[in-house]
Structure formats: structure tokens, C-alpha cells
Amino acid sequence: MLEKYRYIAVEGPIGAGKTSLARRIADHIRADLLLENAGENPFLPRFYQDPKRHALATQLFFLFQRSGQVQDLQQSDLFRHNTVADFLLDKDLLFARLNLDDDEFRLYQKIYDELQPRAPVPDLVIYLQARPDILQARVLGRGIDYERSISTDYLRRLADSYTRYFYSYTAAPLFIVNCEHLNFVQSDADFALLMQQIQAMRGNREFFNRAV
């Protein structure tokens, strides 16, 4: 039944598992997969070491990268191929507000407005939530060297930014998942449970929290 959603976007803070879930959903419904490919950003390791110095370059790289991706998506035939993405273009503004100072953000906003990136509106957005300490544990568990310097405080501020953004999000149906006790990668039962909950969705905004 998930095949009725031609374009699904999975979002959430670092460590929430959005890429893993996007991969599994795409495989499940035999959809095209669109990934943000953060590892291609040459400024990202430097940003985690010295955020103030490298924040603007990091954000501009992501902006141009994702603008090109959503342009390709806009030109593709979404009526013939389902697509699952692990990002929304709007997240760029969310990260920019969090990481840039006022002058840098004004410059970033001018470039963003000049580019006028436009992405198709998803048929469904899945937003993954988890506590900052759990996010950090998952980030450390990935074993990526430059991510080891990500602090719990940064993840807390990032998670708060996502919460504020999705609190007023109305552009597409939104399925909010507390993923603290769900393992989409290693547990077929957890993945099947999530798919059942999404398929049972009736309104434009629902929340799923699996009890321990």
C-alpha cells in the first residue's frame, strides 16, 4: 500500500536513522532512492572541528548539491517511478539558521533566493525523533571519524530545531515516529510494524511511539 505514495521523504536529526530507513523503504516498494550524500561535502569534517570558520562553506556546498538533486527530481517522471529521499530541501534553511551568524545567514538567504530551488511536494514525510543522548550514541556507533566531535549539546539544539520546524509543517502528510525503541535495519519485525502504522494512517498528521 505504500506504493500509493509516489514521493516519500524521510527526515530527522543526525543519528535518527533516516538514511537507513529510506534505503529499506525504497527496497521494500522497489522505488528510486535519492540520498543527500553528506560524505561528498569536503567541508563537513572541517565544520565539525571548527564550526564557526567552516559553517558557511559547508552550508553553501549542501545548498548547491541538493538544489541539483531536487532539480533532477523535478524533471523525473514521478508518475512512473516511486522515489524515496532521505532529505527535504527545506532542511538547508533549518541548518543554516542553526549554524550561521546573522551576516552569514543573510548572505546565505540571498544566494538561496537567487537560486530559487524548488522541489516537488512529497506525498508523505516521515519524521524520526529521538533523545539527544540516543542520537549521539548512534552517531558514535557509525564509526565515522569526523563525527566523533559532534557534541550532545549540538544534537540537542538540532533536535529542537527539527521539532520547531515540524510543529507547524503542513505542506504534506506527516508521520512522526519516536524511533528510540525501533531498529529498522536489524529487525524485520520493527520495520513491518512501522509499515503497518503508516498504512493505517488516516489523517494528515499522526504520531507513533512504540512502548518498551
Score class of each variant (00 low, 15 high):
205 R>G: 05
72 D>L: 12
144 I>K: 12
38 A>Y: 11
52 K>W: 01
39 G>R: 14
75 Q>M: 04
161 S>Y: 03
200 A>I: 00
53 R>M: 09
80 R>L: 12
47 F>E: 03
144 I>W: 07
112 Y>I: 01
60 L>M: 13
46 R>N: 12
102 D>I: 00
108 Y>Q: 01
131 R>G: 01
152 T>P: 05
7 Y>S: 03
139 V>H: 11
50 D>C: 10
43 F>T: 06
45 P>E: 06
15 G>E: 01
139 V>L: 10
78 L>S: 07
34 L>E: 06
154 Y>N: 07
74 Q>L: 12
104 E>W: 03
56 L>G: 01
202 R>T: 14
133 D>T: 10
134 I>M: 09
1 M>N: 12
86 D>N: 08
211 A>F: 05
94 L>G: 12
180 E>N: 08
145 D>P: 00
160 D>K: 00
165 Y>S: 03
198 I>P: 01
50 D>Q: 14
87 F>M: 04
99 N>D: 14
105 F>V: 00
98 L>N: 12
78 L>C: 09
27 D>R: 15
164 R>S: 13
188 D>H: 06
38 A>M: 11
61 F>Y: 15
77 D>N: 14
81 H>G: 03
74 Q>R: 13
142 R>N: 08
150 I>R: 05
65 Q>N: 13
126 I>Y: 05
76 S>L: 02
151 S>E: 04
54 H>I: 00
111 I>Q: 08
29 I>L: 12
75 Q>D: 05
139 V>G: 10
200 A>S: 13
74 Q>K: 13
138 R>C: 10
153 D>E: 15
52 K>M: 07
97 R>W: 00
190 D>P: 03
104 E>A: 14
138 R>G: 09
145 D>F: 07
6 R>L: 08
123 D>A: 09
26 A>D: 10
33 L>Y: 13
71 Q>N: 11
27 D>H: 14
160 D>T: 08
124 L>D: 01
64 F>D: 03
45 P>N: 10
195 M>V: 15
16 A>I: 00
45 P>I: 10
178 N>Q: 10
118 R>T: 08
132 P>N: 11
64 F>H: 14
181 H>N: 14
160 D>V: 01
69 Q>T: 01
55 A>K: 06
23 R>K: 15
113 D>L: 12
86 D>P: 05
4 K>T: 09
179 C>Y: 02
160 D>L: 07
153 D>I: 11
185 V>H: 04
124 L>Y: 02
148 R>F: 02
40 E>C: 06
79 F>S: 14
80 R>A: 14
93 L>Y: 00
18 K>W: 06
50 D>R: 14
112 Y>V: 01
10 V>N: 05
107 L>Q: 05
57 A>L: 14
18 K>Q: 09
131 R>Q: 13
152 T>S: 13
2 L>G: 04
35 L>D: 11
195 M>E: 12
122 P>V: 04
115 L>R: 05
187 S>T: 07
29 I>V: 15
146 Y>G: 00
160 D>H: 01
153 D>T: 14
159 A>H: 08
116 Q>D: 12
136 Q>L: 15
210 R>K: 14
199 Q>R: 11
